[in-house]
Design a protein around this nucleic acid. Structure first.
Lengths: 263, 263
DNA sequence: CGTCCGCTTGACGTCGTTCAAGTTGGGTGG
DNA sequence: CCACCCAACTTGAACGACGTCAAGCGGACG
């Protein structure tokens, strides 16, 4: 490791000491592009930190949103129900995600937001975001980018449902979670916590809970991965990636400019 | 109609006379919230207008994007291929859409962008967008909003694939196109042009072209709609909406603040 | 200790795919 | 103007993945 790399690391650690809440924001996706001032501004914009129990609806669709939540700990999701009450989960959120930042520009959401586990969130009032948009173009662009990252994950979710069979969908979802949780240091040797039910997973990948259960059994019996009491063990990552046709490029590891090789 | 409404209409027409290219941008979704200065700025940001033939790849994934395209005429799409070459279309674009505005904040895309029909686009160089972000917070927010509209459509696309059967998916897609094209005055008594192939549609809704053909036949025989030589005829809109479980709220007709009832 | 929710497994039905064989129609060249 | 061509569309028959229905299991919590 070069000296400058060490310096960068130390600087990052120092900065983060003063910005404990947004420490994970855009980690592994261009967080370095944020200046110390950006980081301080964002940290100062936090209104309160709040703990919320599992299975709580945080935001109902059509409801006016006045602040956005940066997820610090736990798992949240976004979903919509059809009129028979069948649920489609459209996004999972893990620590470091700015869960409903899009509520700032949209004013109200087109879907519900809920916790799946107990969570801790940092709330940022939209008035603060307005100030940022008015005075900090670079930070604004980073925030914008982070909402577009969600859009990129949505697109991959469409691919998952449109082109993969049940095995592939499940494999793909766990590949994504593995990659995302890895970026925020939540994975150790292929093992990570993701304490949701099989029903939740089924509602995400668009199959029935019964069939999801069979798929999980298949993956387990083939030695690819296990999912038990909220813990995921990736046993054969290459095989899983193959089954899922997974390419993590859409997660923009390294940030907006990496693959584009900024001039 | 009230006098002030008439005035508003006249004013809008006057403005648009000087902004022919961005006339359709955010039409029906909060375009009114753009000030005359915003409109002029955006119009002035246009670099060139270009005509592109049908079936042309405009932007390849991972390729550095240096300008974004506002679609003026024709149909475009965004898609990704799996490694066997199966295509999943993740978005259709119609006149008034800022097709790859997200390329500005992301720098490179995670998918390909292509034309389906001959199109006319207005190109905006990213340097111009940077100036807008630096000096025009309100316009910045409108642009941000327009990229989030795409994300909202992605979410509904996920719902379509995850919760609906083949009939419902096709019905849902056509309901969306009907609503979107209606907002930019491309629909007359339930009839509109959408000159794509059945293969394209199949690649969008995640079924085989063979089955798509059967679904279309079913919809035709039940008198719900027809699709022939690039022309869509909505014959029984309520039935189609019912089949699709369609609720256009996610298209944000009226703009960001309508359902939220801005204070 | 009982209850409830989530997990598990089996049997069977159905929707959509696959494979295969035409048909139609817009575009091109003789 | 007609003949030809090719891509897109259309239809049929058989198969298979996933859904549905039903029953039983197991662990957490009151």
């Amino acid at each position: 490791m070069s000296v400058s790399a060490v310096d960068t690391l130390r600087e990052e650690r120092d900065r983060d000491a003063y910005a404990p809440h947004i420490r994970l924001f855009l980690k592994g996706r261009g967080r370095e592009a944020m200046t110390p001032e950006d980081i301080a501004t964002l940290e100062d914009s936090i209104d309160v930190v709040r703990d919320i129990p599992a299975r709580t609806i945080v935001n109902r669709r059509e409801e006016r949103v006045r602040s956005s939540s940066l997820l610090l700990e736990g798992v949240m999701c976004r979903y919509m129900d059809d009129r028979q009450g069948n649920r489609q989960i459209v996004a999972f959120h893990v620590p470091g995600d700015f869960v409903d930042l899009h509520g700032f520009a949209m004013r109200h959401l087109d879907h519900d937001v809920a916790t799946l586990t107990p969570v801790r969130v940092a709330l940022v009032r939209h008035g603060r975001l307005e100030t940022i948009v008015a005075h900090r173009p670079h930070l604004t662009r980073m925030l914008w980018f982070s909402t577009l990252l969600d859009a990129a994950m949505h697109r991959e979710w469409i691919f998952r449902l449109g082109r993969l069979d049940a095995d592939g969908r499940v494999a793909h979802l766990f590949c994504e979670l593995h990659a995302r949780l890895g970026m925020v240091d939540r994975v150790e040797q292929g093992v990570f916590r993701f304490p949701v039910t099989q029903i939740d997973l089924a509602e995400a990948v668009g199959i029935t809970p019964v069939h999801l259960n069979r798929v999980l059994r298949g993956l387990r019996e083939r030695g690819l991965m296990t999912f038990r009491s909220g813990e995921v063990r990736i046993l054969d990552h290459p095989a899983l990636v193959g089954l899922a046709d997974f390419d993590p490029a859409y997660l923009y590891g390294g940030g907006p400019s990496v693959a584009g090789r900024d001039a």
